[in-house]
Design a protein around this nucleic acid. Structure first.
Lengths: 271, 271
DNA sequence: ATGCGTTTGTGAACGTGTGCACAAAGATGG
DNA sequence: CCATCTTTGTGCACACGTTCACAAACGCAT
């Protein structure tokens, strides 16, 4: 029973995932240097521009091969090309966006989309009142056309910006039609067959992580609850009934933060 | 010269970063169970719903304390409360959104924003033609009001959805005004003082990572260039001039994927 | 040619994260 | 009250990622 909801495949041709995730960062910094006609750059400089450690950067580049010159640094244009090639950005990637709500609109209008080889092949939505309108000069087409578009345009990347309730269904259709990489903005765990990559972007999760650290800063209580287990939280003493009673109190405080029908919300951004 | 562009602080009160990043996932799955009035859940079930390994989930929860009951599982409502509390979601987090372009609009309209304790304190923009309009029922106010709003409403979290060129400047003002956590949608490396957290959401990076893996799938060349270093890429033979000459050829192919004035683009989504 | 200063590339140590596998703990039924 | 069954909590081993520190490589000046 192999489940691969996210599919973190390890070490494709020896390049670590962590390195792959940083290559776009380097590429962006290098592109900026290239525009300023800077010919070469040292690992120290580039690392500063990309916001990483210089040793890490050198090790990252070492996985791509030895493109630097000792005593000098890296040739900017050459590196731009090598990283672009490694990331597969020298070819064209047609992309479909499914779910043209607020976020879908924003993505369709996204200028940086067309650059770096990504091309919006089609905008899709299930809502008849949205279908037919245009976003960023492109017509919004009906979901029914999904299969034919993916097939005819050889789309291998799909972006899901639907409400969470529709995400898995849309995902299944995309995969069935031949899409093998999915960028998911819906706050849902997508289950896909082996061989399909899913990455998720989740605003809510990022905010919650920030809130966690923020709480640490302000509520810098004197080593909260290290000496004798903090007062508000004690070890569950009895069987489930006791815990259930305790939670009845707790539930009141939590209910505020719980909205109804999370899966039916129209918003297209992660919840 | 301590630089902390991203600031990954390790192990706050013993809870690993990786665990913190998963807590919102568990919370979401638990909220769904709670709405279906499911009283208890086993680590196996919950792990499946959250898309993670059950052993990992149990270890994650063990950092929060021992909230489970052996032979039974976890009490859903109780866990919802405990995780909410741990993440700091039982309190109110006023948030400002700076840069009301396409994405700013999408975020303002984002329903899941108000839930989980996050409240939009203000929408800000520098463009006079945008200031005064409303988004999601809130008026867009001018950047000039940033400081007074942050101060009066005790805002500690800021969301940056400006063009990349303005991001660092906005960031500086937010930090100066008292914001200590920033969610950055602009494709820029933000430099902040110690004590300020920055998290970034970057569509372009996610797409490029997908493209990388996608390239691996289709172009499954027979172990590309392992036996004798692939032909197109050879070791730099001479001094910089030779490398520079080589890149001249390469540059042509790379130029397609390079747009001009990346920092001036109006789009508010990551490039 | 030789030496000097600079910067890369990487071995090695360390820290973090993951997953197995199992003992301990509780529920449940007789 | 004991036996059995389920599920948690965690010790341990391993994989992955990060950082240090330094030898090797290179440009350049003499």
């Amino acid at each position: 029973m192999r489940r691969t909801p996210v599919g973190r495949q390890t070490r494709a041709r020896g390049i670590p995932e962590a390195t792959v995730a940083r290559l776009p960062l380097y590429l962006r910094a290098l592109t900026a240097l290239s525009e300023r006609s800077v010919p070469t750059v040292s690992s120290e400089e580039l690392a500063a521009a990309a916001g990483v450690n210089s040793a890490k950067l050198r090790k990252d580049f070492s996985y791509l091969g030895s493109y630097g010159t000792r005593g000098v640094g890296y040739d900017v244009e050459y590196l731009v090309y090598q990283i672009s090639r490694e990331l597969g950005l020298t070819q064209d990637w047609p992309v479909v966006i499914v779910g043209i709500g607020n976020l879908g609109h924003a993505l369709a209008n996204y200028g940086g989309f067309a650059s770096r080889g990504f091309r919006v092949a089609a905008l899709l939505d299930a809502d008849p009142s949205v279908v037919g309108s245009t976003a960023a000069g492109l017509p919004v087409r009906h979901m029914d056309e999904l299969e034919s578009i993916v097939d005819s345009q050889q789309v291998s990347i799909g972006v899901i910006t639907t409400p969470p309730g529709a995400a898995q269904q849309v995902c299944d259709r995309l995969v069935e039609a031949g899409v093998t990489s999915i960028l998911n903005f819906a706050p849902t765990v997508l289950t896909v067959p082996d061989g399909v990559d899913v990455r998720k972007v989740d605003l809510s999760i990022e905010l919650q992580i920030l809130a966690f650290h923020e709480q640490r800063k302000s509520g810098e209580e004197p080593e909260e609850g290290r000496p004798a287990e903090e007062p508000a939280r004690e070890r569950a003493p009895g069987p489930v009934r006791a815990a259930a009673a305790k939670l009845r109190r707790a539930a009141g405080a939590a209910k505020d933060a719980k909205e109804l029908g999370e899966n039916d919300r129209q918003a297209v951004l992660p919840a």
